[in-house]
Design a protein around this nucleic acid. Structure first.
Lengths: 206, 206
DNA sequence: GTCTATATTCCGATAGAC
DNA sequence: GTCTATCGGAATATAGAC
């Protein structure tokens, strides 16, 4: 269907996007160069401008896609119909899995959000993001019935995110803090799902 | 003692360093420009090269200073002689305070560590960093005496760091997750010290 | 030590042939 | 749609006067 180039199963535009995604998440907006992106996509620099008008636009496209893909996913888990404790376990399991597979994405998003906070709130974050109303209600009910001790629902959410994300995005720093080898660090992260679930559930038990 | 310039109480070299510190932590190596740094230091671009040979060297100086100043500080708290539970509370209190005053430093360190992990382990991280041997022993004893439930000491350390650091460095993201205003986010972070301490201590109680 | 002026390299963007 | 060639500006770095 396409040009008979050996590896050209995806469209050029798609290949550009993927190369840009990889390099932007790795090096940030200023650090990634158009030439590099073109090289990785296996095309010429001029084509970048043909498909996306400017570096700025290309960057925006990547940021927007990442945000719109990642953010709703985890909020939806929290808003699902699962019972509270299973839900928290499910959240930890899937979240840690996804982040370990894409370790640079969260740090990229956090960095860029800090550099241009206004842009994100005005343009990039989808207006229809799930809110956590159901989750909050579920927590309050669990407190009322004595299933868990009294906890502030918002802090519980952020605690769950923190415990999952931080050790992975700050992996080299964690290695230094713990004073362990790369090998041991891998093992440490392998234990992480079990440990975080245990920690979370113990923290909120009555 | 110096030139009688109105604001020149610190040496030029120092002013350059501080300007560089500010801009590098804010924008990263690629994002900060030499011209900007010179402007903020109130001197000429050429002087940057007189004191520090290149942008690369200036950047290294900043990174090295930040790491060597910040990292030992918190490890020392964990290695202090305080009883375990008070120590954890003290750690949370001071750590959250410091990070809220310098919200960009941890993210900067984490980002740069991810970009050049080897450099850090080889050159930048001080060889005499405190190790957490005493802390680990203290945790094991607390488990043995029944003061706390059985927990993996390393995960406890990283959990404490995660809960303190993440919400502050990922502040805009946290705002989006929680769907709250800037005002409410401030209040949320004000509650944070209390909530983290409570969460940590509940998580490890027998 | 500090400045102005300039060299040099790099990078984003465009023109124009195919 | 894709390429080569090139422009124009920005950023790092140096030369040289004071």
């Amino acid at each position: 269907m396409d040009k008979p180039n050996s590896e050209q199963f995806e469209s050029t535009e798609q290949r550009i996007f993927e190369a840009a995604h990889e390099l932007f998440t790795l090096k940030g907006m200023a650090g990634a160069k158009m030439q590099e992106i073109a090289d990785r996509a296996g095309i010429n620099k001029a084509l970048l401008h043909y498909y996306y008008r400017s570096k700025e636009k290309l960057f925006e496209a990547v940021v927007k896609a990442v945000i719109r893909k990642v953010m709703p996913k985890f909020l939806q888990i929290l808003e699902s119909e699962l019972p509270l404790l299973e839900k928290l376990e499910h959240f930890v399991d899937t979240y840690i899995d996804v982040i370990r597979q894409n370790p640079f994405v969260p740090l990229f998003v956090i960095s860029e959000m800090n550099k241009h906070p206004d842009r994100f709130f005005d343009e990039i974050v989808p207006k229809d993001l799930p809110r956590l109303d159901f989750f909050y209600k579920q927590v309050e009910e669990a407190v009322a019935t004595g299933l868990i001790r009294p906890v502030a629902p918002r802090h519980l959410v952020i605690n769950a995110f923190s415990l999952c994300v931080f050790p992975i995005i700050a992996r080299p720093m964690a290695r230094i803090i713990l004073g362990i080898s790369a090998e041991e660090m891998n093992q440490f992260l392998d234990e992480r799902k079990k440990e975080v679930k245990s920690f979370l559930l113990h923290a909120i038990r009555p």
